[in-house]
Design a protein around this nucleic acid. Structure first.
Lengths: 178, 178
DNA sequence: ATCTTATATATGACTAAACATATATAAGAT
DNA sequence: ATCTTATATATGTTTAGTCATATATAAGAT
């Protein structure tokens, strides 16, 4: 499961709590290719602990709730390495908007243009979010090997969103000519 | 749920069995934006029948198993129309390959190039599959209103795959220069 | 004074989807 | 002769993911 491996990958860099994984990793740096619910993160951490891939230690705090800090084990590191070399399947595609568009012929052109424009707006918003992610570009002097691959995943998101926006604009132009 | 509405949408054109929906719709004309398991199609048909959106009649066959032919009801048609005007959420993105690439820095460049090339091959294959889908292009004299919107959903798949392939080629070139 | 936000973990309940398998018959291939 | 493929429907089980909610405290906002 990719979620488990994403968590292991993040814990390889530094020990973290479930809360930090959620707020600092899944809501930020990897949100553009993997989204995860808080409940699922905690339950996956439990499962990883059972499997011996992570271990936790309780950090008592006085003014705030106690933290359960997870660190990766040697077995966990080995598991990440093994998994990195496995072939990943293409993601299953399920696009609610395309289901709508497929059957859109029975609507008025004005209604179709409205739905295309709403979708365009959402993707422009998404693109803006990706652009705001602070990752050095490939030619930046601060670029490291690690950040290079993180940047590549961001480039994937950027180019996908751009392609989607171009396609939506073409669709709108096409319907306006109908 | 989009699956239920995709089924209703297909049944609007003609009554069909679960088997036909699977083999002639979900494996063919809409496979590029919605994939569905046989078990899920049958169970969704049951649910749609309970809700009164479809009804079935048993067609007895002698040399083959009996068919259960589903047709859409007036309530089902109304439901499709209502749903066509609802705003669809952007699909949640979960790309196993990007999780790998994000953490790929710890592999050798040759290993990384191999995984990028494997992924490229898979997407080129996917693009070829999309190109083989027999839908008239926008300027084709046989183009109808209905097919125009089906063609648009295919164009979305084609441009997405192309963007993905371009991105993968850039990544490979980049790693080769590292 | 009261409400919201941030910090932090946990569980119950549910839905969507995936995977396996059962049943039944005929045609065609090895 | 035996195996596979096509036709056709159905169910059991499991996994992944979502949504709601519980608990607890402090800081900051209205």
């Amino acid at each position: 499961m990719s979620l488990a491996h994403a968590i292991l990958g993040m814990l390889q860099k530094q020990p973290m709590t479930g809360y930090e994984l959620k707020t600092q990793c899944f809501d930020d740096s990897i949100a553009h290719f993997w989204q995860a619910d808080q409940a699922q993160i905690y339950r996956t951490l439990d499962k990883l602990a059972e499997q011996g891939f992570v271990e936790s230690r309780l950090e008592v705090q006085e003014d705030r709730p106690n933290r359960k800090v997870y660190s990766i084990t040697d077995a966990g590191r080995a598991e990440v390495h093994r998994w990195l070399l496995t072939e990943q399947p293409l993601p299953t595609i399920r696009e609610p908007f395309l289901v709508q568009l497929f059957f859109a012929g029975q609507l008025d052109n004005t209604q179709i243009i409205a739905m295309l424009e709403q979708q365009l707006k959402a993707h422009e918003q998404q693109l803006a979010t990706y652009r705001a992610i602070p990752l050095p570009s490939f030619d930046n002097p601060n670029m490291t090997r690690e950040l290079t691959f993180q940047r590549m995943t961001l480039e994937a998101g950027l180019s996908n969103e751009q392609a989607c926006i171009d396609w939506l604009r073409d669709c709108i132009a096409h319907v306006k000519r109908m």
